[in-house]
């Protein structure tokens, strides 16, 4: 009988975990960065902020998301309203790893003209979670 209860408890614990959080996604990217560089120092909000405003071509992140990531943004071309990017202001952000990857791919290509590295992704999320990125 005890064994049965133990099996049930194990099944309970092994069930899928809830959705990701911005913090868990940031840690995941940081771990990826660490595997490629032993000297990686961890996510940096300051580096994330620089990345957010970097504009080597037509657009930076701020072009559509404004220079305050907690504010409502607007698509530079279509004029469509964009809900706040910062998870501090918008709890729906950074909850789904596949969705986050899709948007990093699209938006890093559109702004920087290349894919972002895992370290840059961790930096950006740490900026959006910081006091500066969350206001």
């Amino acid at each position: 009988m005890f064994r049965k209860a133990l099996v049930a408890a194990t099944v309970l614990l092994a069930a899928p975990a809830s959705a990701e959080t911005p913090e868990s996604l940031m840690r995941g990217y940081a771990e990826q960065a660490r595997t490629t560089s032993a000297s990686y120092a961890g996510p940096s909000p300051a580096a994330g902020r620089r990345l957010f405003h970097q504009q080597p071509r037509d657009w930076s992140c701020a072009t559509c998301h404004t220079d305050q990531p907690a504010a409502t943004g607007r698509h530079a071309i279509t004029g469509k309203t964009i809900a706040p990017l910062s998870p501090v202001a918008n709890p729906e952000r950074f909850r789904d790893a596949a969705k986050v990857e899709k948007w990093f791919k699209r938006n890093c290509t559109d702004t920087l003209g290349r894919l972002c590295t895992s370290a840059e992704k961790a930096d950006l999320i740490s900026f959006l979670l910081s006091a500066q990125g969350g206001t």
């Binding site: 009988m1 049965k4 209860a5 049930a8 408890a9 099944v11 309970l12």
Partner: peptide, 9 residues
């Protein structure tokens, strides 16, 4: 107890 644990699971 067993029944309760299984129900929760």
């Amino acid at each position: 107890i067993d029944w309760i644990v299984w129900s929760i699971a």
